[in-house]
């Protein structure tokens, strides 16, 4: 405020005033920033509360979970829930299925995203814009709009019920991945590609030796986001898979919940066993997620 008020003609004084006021306000802002962190602590604690509760309660006996006096930490470390969950929920099988399906879906969609991204960012061909708008438009149509006929096509016409392929096929091309890769490749200069083309390299070689290595970081971001999405998918596997051997993790969990016994620690233990690898995966790769979101360039 004072700065504009003082009509000082002397530039030296002005500079001094600015420096002084910025150091002081910097200190103030530092304090404000840390105060925010402290004030915010209970809020974030509330967000994490269900997790704490689940991990702790998975070691409790039913009587303690439902006891009138609420306890946080288990009074007696009970492992019965874990024993039961490991023995009966077939989580390893479900986990393997989920990882298998997600890994193949992600590998395919990362590859096709890179190819289509290259196509839309750097290549000229007849009908390019129409094709791009077509691909984009798929993002705006809700899954439910094509849900029923897709089921009919997969289950009746292609006879793919109870196959891994039914879960992989819908993820081979993903408009989202194509969009991000295209945006990324747009921003890199064309000279590198041009010089390679002059040297006689065809598009396939340019793609393989230049585009693919260049877009590694974007593709990693897409891969993580897609993996989590594919891993947690529920509705589509629900209608495509009946056979217990092919159950993905969400389906196996649903089965376990449906056969809910008297002992909640079993379910909680099963959930802990299922969730922990996902959370570890997330913690390891989370910077890619942040990157992926920045790359969607929500600027529009």
């Amino acid at each position: 405020m004072g700065l504009l008020g003082t009509k000082s003609a002397d530039p030296a004084t002005t500079v001094a005033t600015i420096t002084l006021s910025t150091t002081r306000s910097k200190l103030r802002r530092d304090i404000a920033a840390w105060a925010l962190v402290v004030v915010f602590l209970p809020v974030s604690f509330a967000a994490a509360l269900p997790f704490f509760w689940m991990y702790l309660s998975s070691f409790k006996q039913a009587s303690e979970i439902y006891s009138v006096t609420i306890t946080w930490f288990p009074s007696k470390f009970y492992l019965g829930g874990y024993e039961y969950a490991i023995e009966h929920f077939q989580l390893v099988r479900a986990y393997s299925n989920s990882i298998f399906v997600s890994a193949i879906s992600v590998s395919a969609s990362v590859m096709t995203s890179a190819m289509a991204g290259f196509l839309f960012a750097k290549k000229q061909f007849w009908g390019k814009n129409v094709l791009f708008v077509f691909v984009l438009s798929t993002l705006m149509v809700p899954f439910f709009a094509i849900f029923i006929p897709s089921f009919v096509v997969y289950a009746v016409f292609l006879n793919l019920k109870n196959t891994y392929f039914a879960l992989i096929l819908p993820n081979i091309f993903t408009a989202f991945g194509i969009l991000i890769t295209r945006q990324f490749l747009h921003s890199i200069p064309g000279e590198m590609i041009d010089s390679a083309t002059v040297d006689g390299a065809g598009d396939w070689r340019v793609f393989w030796h230049i585009i693919l290595p260049l877009s590694k970081s974007v593709l990693a971001a897409i891969a993580i986001l897609q993996f989590l999405g594919a891993f947690n998918e529920f509705l589509w596997p629900l209608v495509m898979i009946d056979s217990r051997d092919l159950y993905t993790l969400p389906l196996a969990l649903r089965k376990a919940f449906a056969a809910q016994g008297p002992d909640p620690s079993r379910l909680l233990a099963g959930a802990v066993l299922s969730l922990t690898p996902i959370l570890i995966f997330f913690l390891i790769f989370q910077r890619h997620i942040v990157r992926g979101i920045s790359l969607t360039g929500v600027k529009g």
Binding site: A47, A48, L228, L253, L275
Partner: peptide
């Protein structure tokens, strides 16, 4: 990170919690 944990948690586990 804390606020992102629920995002990566499968619905089924969130429902259980």
């Amino acid at each position: 990170t804390l606020f992102f944990l629920p995002v990566v948690t499968p619905w089924l586990i969130a429902v259980l919690m």
